[in-house]
Design a protein around this nucleic acid. Structure first.
Lengths: 381, 381
DNA sequence: CGCTTACTGGTAAGCGCTTACGGCGGGGCG
DNA sequence: CGCCCCGCCGTAAGCGCTTACCAGTAAGCG
């Protein structure tokens, strides 16, 4: 039982395939009567348009590809775990954006060293590509960008033809440093750094260094981790064993490492934030369930995906983009691990995604916070 | 600068397009010399095959569609938040499986009441569909399944041509009840139920009822929530206000509601598990960061996605499937909210996805637990 | 030495759809 | 009353690729 095609519809409705096509696509120049007749037949036969044929003929697929690095799921390599959540959020945002413009999302994960075959295949099947999480090499990126619209996420500034959407590491981190140094008066700061290979890690670390010294604080030590909670734990132990005095504040370049640090400190009964303040970066979901709640910088992962897709849409439509690099704002989220008063139970949901437990939310320092949705009011009690 | 096609390659290599196609697809019946020449030209021109054309000609897209319900992101409608994580996990599993078989994933979210247009479009662009989270109505499901391979997730048993992949609600929940009643000796059980419309919620609740009475415990009350943390809070407050004595154990039909319940109980200084034991279902990530850690039933979300995709692959290849309904095992995860001794800092990662903080994990009652990966050993300390 | 056989590679027919173009009636206009 | 224009619809030419079928060549065989 072959799926019906426009030929079948045309025959049954007694018209030509051109007319069928026009009716299905609501083109002008058709009498209402003819259109309705065709549509009725389509309904009757359960017609579903063949997307490949349409794409081929139309010259565009109305599809955006999302390329992510394969996240080895077998892994005790825990570092991937939260980055995985980051990727999920990006995909979610991309999907939201795609839906709005009537596009579909083609998802492919590619193994880090697998060559570009998978990426190439994506090029031939989409109108544009979003590359997340450094899923392809710089070389591959250049190759692809030379012949296909591409948006890179968490990438350096564009070198080739690719567009870049990034978050404002500098702004968020500098406000966080300011909070620690100016509001809390911490002057001895330790930094748990990320991998050298990550542009995000580098940007954040450099910002800490510059801001701290500018504000009169001192970097009393840095330790290099790999963004994993395990590396945070390891570093916290190293610091604990050391004879040097503890830094007054430990700034971690992402939340996962902060989680690891917090675990070790808590286990050793070193009071956070009384003895050591701890901060993170990203605002992963877990951060607000920790005790003490982790003060961090929120990274708008969904917006990254959404922005990437809508930029590609503009490019596909031929719109000339004003900028080749978009920087999305970040926001400091103050909880208690920095030394601010702790929130009683759980804070309220932040703007878009949360468990929705009703308590007004503490606002991020120096950043606009969305007003709590009205319907949360009735839950407060 | 039009993208090069096989015609361009054929001309440049001095062969016919058929030969080019054969070379690119590594078909037999070509001399190595010819093949290499074509491949060299392809490389030189930066050729990328057009996926739509290939799909049209080949008669299959090598793509699996994943249809999810649009998750309103503006929402204080918090119930969606964790289900959103569930969907992410399913997508991840599906992607993993798709990659293995060389398929791509086409992702589309459809608004609950938007008609099936989006779903129809997916039918015409894929070789099979995975429907997650009741994204389409029963009616639409029947329609689609009649003409396209479909796997439904979290669905009732198949009524039409669709395949169903579900989790073993009954097995997991009955083991959990057994744990509470037999091992802990709780006889007065309260149940925080889920929405009537959810087959999962219904199956879990019925299991609790049957098992509990069979084991000699008593259901002292039930409250209907909507799977959201907020509804859990609301219910916990209701219970608190009531003059009736507290149940000894509160079984929540999902983790989110358990989170809400825990929050309220903790805030009111009602000791968990000493006064009231609390359990959940799903094992969302947050559950293990709560204090006390939430005893729950792990639901293999990634496996759901992976199984769905590989089943569709079998169908696409023409393999006759032995069963139309697959039930994936669940596993009780014992933490401390049930009254078992609490784990010191954080438990170790469970099998596939975790932060990887190193401590051997408590094993689920009556279920196999994957051995802790070796390289975690060195972190212990 | 002629004929079969195995190998290579070319020819052409689609796959299902969009769309440029042209034809055919009928109403408005000169 | 004839002409033009316009609304409606059919004809046909692709979109880029796969593949059935066939042709040509060289090697193998009696």
């Amino acid at each position: 039982m072959r799926a019906p095609t426009i030929y079948d519809l045309a025959e049954k409705a007694g018209v030509s395939i051109a007319t069928v096509s026009r009716a299905l696509n609501a083109k002008a120049g058709l009498s209402a009567e003819t259109r309705d007749r065709v549509l009725a037949v389509a309904d009757e036969l359960g017609y579903v348009p063949n997307g490949t044929a349409r794409g081929l003929s139309y010259g565009a697929t109305e599809t955006i590809g999302v390329v992510v690095a394969t996240r080895s799921t077998n892994a005790a390599l825990a570092e991937e775990h939260e980055s995985l959540l980051f990727v999920d959020a990006v995909i979610r945002g991309a999907e939201r954006s795609a839906q709005r413009i009537g596009f579909a999302l083609l998802l492919a994960s590619i193994r880090p060293r697998s060559g570009w075959e998978a990426a190439k295949r994506m090029v031939g099947r989409t109108d544009g590509l979003v590359v997340v999480d450094r899923a392809v090499s710089e070389e591959a990126m250049a190759w692809i960008a030379a012949r296909h619209p591409v948006v890179a996420l968490a990438w350096d500034s564009p070198k080739g033809d690719e567009l870049v959407v990034r978050i404002d590491n500098v702004g968020g981190m500098s406000r966080l440093v300011e909070h620690l140094v100016v509001e809390h008066g911490y002057t001895e700061i330790g930094v748990v750094r990320g991998p050298e290979s990550s542009p995000d890690a580098t940007a954040r670390w450099q910002t800490v260094e510059q801001c701290a010294t500018k504000l009169g604080a001192r970097i009393v030590g840095t330790w290099v981790g790999d963004f994993s909670a395990a590396s945070g734990e390891r570093i916290a132990r190293t610091i604990g064993r050391s004879t040097a005095p503890m830094p007054r504040a430990l700034m971690c370049m992402n939340d996962q490492m902060a989680v690891g640090v917090l675990n070790v400190l808590t286990a050793r009964e070193i009071a956070v934030p009384e003895e050591v303040a701890v901060t993170g970066f990203d605002d992963i979901i877990v951060s607000r369930y920790l005790r003490p709640g982790l003060t961090t910088v929120r990274q708008p992962a969904e917006e990254l995906g959404a922005t990437a897709v809508s930029s590609l849409y503009e490019v596909a439509r031929g719109t000339a983009l004003a900028v080749r690099e978009m920087v999305l704002p970040t926001e400091v989220v103050v909880r208690s691990s920095c030394g601010c008063a702790s929130t009683p139970v759980l804070e309220a949901p932040h703007s878009e995604t949360d468990l929705g437990v009703g308590r007004p939310r503490r606002e991020g320092a120096g950043a606009d916070a969305a007003p709590a949705p009205d319907d949360l009011a009735e839950m407060a009690g």
